[in-house]
């Protein structure tokens, strides 16, 4: 276990050195706060800009608190996923390219330790950033549109957070499978998009799909009742995360032996 902590510390140190630990949370914070703010000011901006023919009536309804928070979740679902995939795509592939991976694995370090230390460090960074973003959104929503009970907010936060964790684990998996960081990033974004597309298209057959967690978090927030399929979806996602982690180590070990 001591060895694992050494690797984990190395990952944390690296995140501090390349400023990930600052810029990722700040970016998520911004993403979270911007949507409630623009939704609130949009009618005022349209008013101020004018230029509409006289008598035009455009009613832009203000969102309910739940809808406002969900807009930010939507923001994390697109830009957030993009940032997570791009920032983690080089985590293994890049180290293999630069030779750091070989330097680490020349010592008797289990591959599983190497991958799981990376995963744990990334997990902390992603959840910290995501929490900063959601908290900002919750706070701005509260001030502008009305407060969402903190318990409901937390439930929504954890349900959707598992999907982000899944995306993150998938990126690490592709990164250990492929040599090129760019391809790993592209494939994990593509998989996330396709999964979301297929799941919403066939949502009656695959109710347990990880990609539907966003929908369930939204339904819970708007109707205050968890859809029945939430628990299976959560379990499947957790299972998939563990499986991907095991695959990552296995695939990486094979690659190492191959050359």
């Amino acid at each position: 276990m001591n060895l694992w902590f050494v690797l984990f510390k190395k990952e944390c140190l690296e995140m501090v050195r390349n400023f990930k630990v600052i810029w990722v949370p700040l970016t998520f914070l911004f993403l979270g706060a911007i949507d409630p703010l623009t939704a609130y000011y949009m009618p005022k901006i349209v008013d101020a800009l004018g230029g509409l023919p006289e008598g035009t009536v455009i009613e832009i309804p203000l969102p309910s608190p739940g809808e406002s928070l969900l807009m930010s979740v939507g923001q994390f679902d697109t830009l957030g996923v993009l940032i997570i995939a791009l920032m983690l795509m080089g985590t293994v592939a890049g180290e293999r390219k630069s030779g750091v991976a070989e330097m680490v694995l020349v010592k008797p370090v289990p591959v599983g330790f190497y991958i799981s230390a990376k995963w744990a460090a990334a997990l902390i960074l992603v959840w910290l950033s995501y929490f900063a973003g959601m908290l900002a959104s919750w706070y701005y929503t509260g001030i502008l549109f009305g407060w969402i009970p903190f318990g409901e907010f937390l439930a929504c936060f954890f349900i959707y957070g598992l999907w982000l964790t899944f995306v993150m684990t998938m990126t690490i998996f592709y990164s250990s499978l492929l040599k090129s960081p760019g391809l790993a990033g592209f494939l994990s974004i593509a998989t996330a998009v396709v999964l979301g597309f297929v799941s919403s298209g066939f949502s009656h057959w695959i109710k347990w799909s990880p990609a539907l967690l966003k929908t369930y978090a939204g339904e819970y927030l708007l109707k205050s009742a968890l859809p029945d399929a939430t628990v299976p979806a959560l379990l499947v996602t957790a299972g998939a995360i563990i499986a991907l982690l095991i695959f990552s180590s296995a695939v990486f070990r094979k690659k190492e032996l191959a050359g």
Binding site: N18, F19, K20, W23, I83, L86, M87, G94, K97, S98
Partner: peptide, 8 residues
């Protein structure tokens, strides 16, 4: 931060 920094 994503594309400009060299990681080696």
């Amino acid at each position: 931060f994503i594309f400009g920094r060299r990681n080696d």
